[in-house]
Amino acid sequence: MMKGIKKWRLFSLLTALTVFLSGCGAEHLSTLNPAGQVGRDQYNLLLISGAIVTLVIIVVTIVYILTIVKFRRSKVGEDLIPVQVEGSHKLELLWTIIPIVLLLILAVPTVIYTYNLADVSGMEKVDEDGDKKAVTVNVEANLYWWEFEYPDLGIITAQELVVPTQEKVYFNLKAADVKHSFWIPAAGGKLDTNVENINQFYLTFDNSSEGLKDGVFYGKCAELCGPSHALMDFKVKSLDREDFDAWVVNMQASAEEQTLEGEVAQQGEEIFNTSCIQCHAVSGAGSAGGVGPNLATFGDRNRVAGFMDHTEDNIKNWINNPEEYKPGNLMPQPEELNKGNKFSDQELTALAEYLMGLTVED
């Protein structure tokens, strides 16, 4: 009876693992579906190391099974002592050379790919007019959100990185508070963001993300950084070069005053300018350094606070009690912004209406 129960437990465990592993191929999130050359290089290293490990396991298993079968007690008796091979020069050379060869097979491409990824000289190349050829993004990791500045384009955004396809995009990575780690699983990475120094690398994206789930790749913080580390997500939207250039123009134009439609949205703007403007910018044109995330593209996003569905109710819930949804984040509770009182439902509705109207996409 107990053996039957144990078998069913094992079957249940294997079934659960199968369900979990079935999600490993998600195109917007998985390293098993590389979205660019860097991701493919790292995937190839994964295949090489996996093949080497599999080979070693197979050889060791075969030797182990043959040994058990050949020298089992029922076959050779109690008193047989197998031939001793201790000190055999041939065998010692064999099991010294083989591991060295296997390590070289793995080490050579690893070193090549590592040095290639560290080559960021293209970041400084300019065209005939003196403009930078490549897109460079300054990434600043904060508790628990991401800021993306395009210094050569004069624009800035947060929580959603926008990049062109079919070219190298260079990154300067740093942290504003504690160590984080920048990782876009489908594109490649990861690389730490430190407070005391800047790390640099590049990524490439083959195709537009438009056809993916939610139309974006998912990015993660891959370094345990606090109680809401698991909720420190960001999204990556890859666009064809023409669409990317149009997005840049729209972001630069967002510095101009926008006319809001609707009395509720206008009321929300008034509340925002009284309570929130000291931390959050609403223009995509400018430089980095805001206390809170830049909200210029808030209406174009698909998540609230990086992980909640982009709905009016979630916006209201987040504003009303950010600590409940992201413990340890630095956004003030509403009482600190509204003279010791919670925002009324009408005020929250107005703020949500205003924020949903912050958009740069056509």
Rank of each mutant, 00 (worst) to 15 (best):
N44A: 15
S22R: 00
L104E: 01
E149W: 13
I271T: 12
N341I: 06
M331Y: 01
P322V: 03
L143I: 14
G286Q: 00
Y113F: 15
F205C: 08
L45I: 08
V38R: 09
I271K: 08
A265C: 10
K326R: 14
N338I: 13
V304C: 02
L55Y: 09
L13G: 10
G25N: 09
M232I: 06
K75G: 00
F244G: 00
K190N: 14
W247P: 01
E263G: 07
L203V: 09
L117G: 09
P164I: 02
V108K: 01
G299R: 05
H28I: 08
L330F: 09
L14V: 13
L191A: 06
A352R: 07
A187I: 00
Q84F: 02
E323K: 05
A230N: 04
K220N: 09
A222E: 13
V291D: 13
V169R: 01
G290M: 06
G36E: 06
Q333C: 01
K3D: 11
S22T: 02
I81E: 14
H310N: 13
H280I: 09
I5A: 11
F11Q: 11
W95N: 10
Y150G: 08
I155H: 01
E312D: 06
T54F: 14
F234R: 03
S344E: 05
N273E: 12
N294W: 12
K190P: 14
Y64G: 02
T31C: 05
V60I: 11
L32M: 13
K7Q: 13
G39R: 02
R303A: 06
K342D: 13
T15P: 01
K235G: 06
A187W: 00
L117Q: 11
S275D: 09
G23F: 15
H180K: 10
T31G: 00
T15H: 09
K125I: 15
N341R: 14
A296K: 00
E312F: 09
I52A: 06
A305P: 00
P334M: 15
I58G: 02
G292S: 06
T349I: 03
